[in-house]
Write a protein that binds this DNA or RNA. Structure first.
Length: 587
RNA sequence: GAUCCCGUAGCUCAACCGGAUAGAGCAACAGAUUUCUAAUCUGUCGGUUGCAGGUUCGAGUCCUGCCGGGAUCGCCA
């Protein structure tokens, strides 16, 4: 159930109706394809409130000149009750201007919806799986993971907002060589906990102190039996399980600090154990997509140890990949790719027809093969979109923060959040398109100025609440009922309407962002919205009659309080998608 | 060598899966505001959208080829 109107969708229907009427009059041929007809905000607001391309899109099939068709259509649209002005411009755009009453009528919708404003039924309850983070469980999360984590989470929120049923999922890489290294590292910490002098951590093992408690816990539960009572493989198995469990606990805690909770944690190891990999490979084999062959060496610099070798390969080239891909290593064990195919297969079998993977840029070379695999397994029965997040460059007051790969010298997620706060981190991570690199400056995200969008948007929200507090103190009744009954006809200044029009465009912005899988658009929208509010606020300084609270006019005051109450809801709704708490007071 | 991403105002970036005269912020310059809690607002300046072709009524957007930057490149994850 949607409480509010998507004005663009509404006018698409009106345009459609006008076209039908023209058809009936014989002015247009029957059966025109109107799927490309769109109603959009004009690029330049001075053109009007709404714009449609109908005449240009339909001119050719209707065998008419665009301008002629536009004139006919414009005449019809001029009869719409909400329309005050229609013009035909450029190559055949029809621009509409709507009356103030139409805009004002959107305000009660916003009040009713509150922070839920912008929700829609676009997704129609369809199940979507969003896999993100999926960091290797070998240690705490570091800053490199943060962007993907925030992006994936905001995207999930966004899709939920428009009516998809979203599963937030984390793929635990608990089966590979790095996990063996982790197990050995933990075993060493175990011996350390048993009182052995282990000296420096050998090269190739994880040196971090965060493994010490795992070793201590093993010592507490197993005493000396872990190594003495087991063969090495068994000891490693026990250490590995304890280590993965502990690391996932660590990671869950890190994610919680960012406000992120996954519904499903999916273990790679479980695919190895259940036979799911064999099953999926068999499926591909039955389709004739598996063979044993020798790959060409990569062009350019040939690796020194390269030698032709027969391998079990998947014919991903049949699905657009550049080379067929190995499923088995030379020792006969599975590559990373094989269980990953089984994993995506599993998602498909759980009913997901839209899969979204969020990866770091360093994995972009892997996209084609996964898309190929999904296409093969599902017979093109699923959509997969892989969203790649580019690097985050860390700065402190303009100076790059250098991180070496050496132990303990990376910046952890917790350090970042501890220093600047969850909300600032989340917002800042969404101020760039996912596939563009992002600069993150520890000092600038805390700056209270126009160039810091985190502050700027929060301040708009806080400013509104400040005004509302003052109004309440001055005796205004700000209850839902009182606001709902206010006489809004007192509104009408251009700055007020500019703000309102922007607010009313929010549902569409949300839908567009959701369709594009681009949550950053919400952050940009919020910056625009905040700008419109601050502009209005400042107008009250030039012209006292535009102040929100006017002692000489209680009706006008109440109408404005309603407007900004609604504006605060829209800000809160947008921030909600980003996973950021709206602030009611700046300190 | 191949693949993917990026290239837009001096700087940082938008541009709604092809629309109009390509928009914001910062910086610079000129103003307003001692406040409905200050950190805000208004205006001016600023462009051959890397280059060259192509498709289209229309291209920053799609296609081809170059140039430049980044990432990745048989068994890692």
């Amino acid at each position: 159930m949607t409480a509010e109107m998507n004005i663009f969708r509404y006018f698409e229907d009106r345009v459609e109706a006008a076209l039908k009427a023209l058809e009936k009059e014989g002015a247009l041929p029957a059966g025109l394809d109107t799927s490309r007809v769109a109603v959009e905000p004009p690029r330049d607001p001075s053109h009007g409130d709404l714009s449609t391309n109908a005449a240009m899109v339909l001119a050719k099939p209707a065998n008419m000149k665009p301008r002629d068709l536009a004139d006919r259509l414009a005449a019809k649209l001029a009869a719409e009750e909400a329309v005050t002005e229609v013009s035909v411009a450029g190559p055949g755009f029809i621009n509409l201007r709507l009356n103030t009453g139409f805009w004002l009528a959107r305000i009660p919708e916003m009040l009713r919806s509150g922070p839920a404003y912008g929700a829609s039924e676009l997704g129609a309850g369809e199940a979507v799986n969003v896999e993100y983070v999926s960091a290797n469980p070998t240690g705490p999360m570091h800053v490199g993971h943060v962007r993907g984590a925030v992006f994936g989470d905001a995207l999930a929120n966004l899709l939920e907002k428009v009516g998809y049923r979203v599963c937030r999922e984390y793929y635990i890489n608990d089966a590979g060589g790095q996990i063996e290294v982790l197990a050995r590292s933990v075993l060493l910490r175990y011996r350390e906990a048993r009182g052995e002098a282990i000296g420096a951590i050998p090269e190739g093992l994880y040196p971090g102190d965060y493994l010490k408690p795992v070793g201590q816990a093993l010592a507490a539960t197993h005493g000396g039996d872990l190594i003495e009572g087991n063969d090495e493989a068994e000891a490693l198995r026990i250490a590995r399980e304890a280590a993965v469990e502990a690391m996932m606990e660590l990671i869950r805690g890190d994610l919680a600090v960012l406000g992120i909770t996954h519904e499903v944690f999916f273990s790679e190891l479980s695919l190895h154990r259940s036979g799911a990999i064999e099953e999926t490979v068999k499926l591909l084999e039955d389709k004739g997509l598996i063979y044993v062959g020798v790959l060409e060496p990569p062009k350019g610099e040939t690796p020194e140890d390269w030698e032709p070798r027969p391998q079990t390969l998947f014919r991903s080239t049949q699905f657009g990949d550049d080379a067929d891909r190995a499923l088995k290593k030379s020792d006969g064990s599975w590559t990373y790719f094989a269980p990953d195919i089984a994993y995506h297969h599993d998602k498909f079998r759980r009913g997901y027809r839209t899969l979204i993977d969020v990866w770091g840029a360093d994995h972009s070379g892997y996209i084609k093969r996964v898309k190929a695999a999904v296409a093969a397994i599902t017979d093109n029965g699923a959509e997969i979109d892989v969203k790649v997040c580019q690097m985050v460059r860390l700065f402190r007051n303009g100076e790059p923060v250098r991180m070496s790969k050496r132990a303990g010298d990376f910046v952890t997620l917790r350090e970042v959040v501890d220093e600047v706060g969850k909300d600032a981190v989340r917002f800042m991570m969404l101020t760039r398109k996912n596939d563009a690199p992002l600069d993150f400056d520890f000092v600038k995200v805390k700056e209270q100025s126009r160039d810091n969008p985190v502050f700027y948007v929060q301040y708009a929200h806080a400013r509104i609440h400040s005004v509302l507090r003052n109004a309440a103190e001055a005796g205004y009744d700000l209850s839902d009922g009182a606001l709902a009954n206010a006489d809004l006809s007192k509104l009408g200044d251009e700055a007020e309407l500019a703000l309102l029009r922007l607010m009313a465009g929010f549902p569409r912005q949300v839908e567009q962002a959701a369709i594009a899988h681009e949550p950053h658009r919400i952050a940009f929208y919020l910056d625009d919205l905040a700008a419109a509010f601050h502009a209005l606020w400042n107008k009250g300084k030039d012209d006292a009659s535009l102040r929100f609270i006017r002692e000489d006019d209680r009706d006008a005051t109440l109408a404005r309080l309603v407007l900004i109450r609604a504006a605060a809801y829209v800000v809160a709704a947008g921030l909600g998608i980003l996973g950021v708490e709206p602030t009611e007071e700046m300190r």
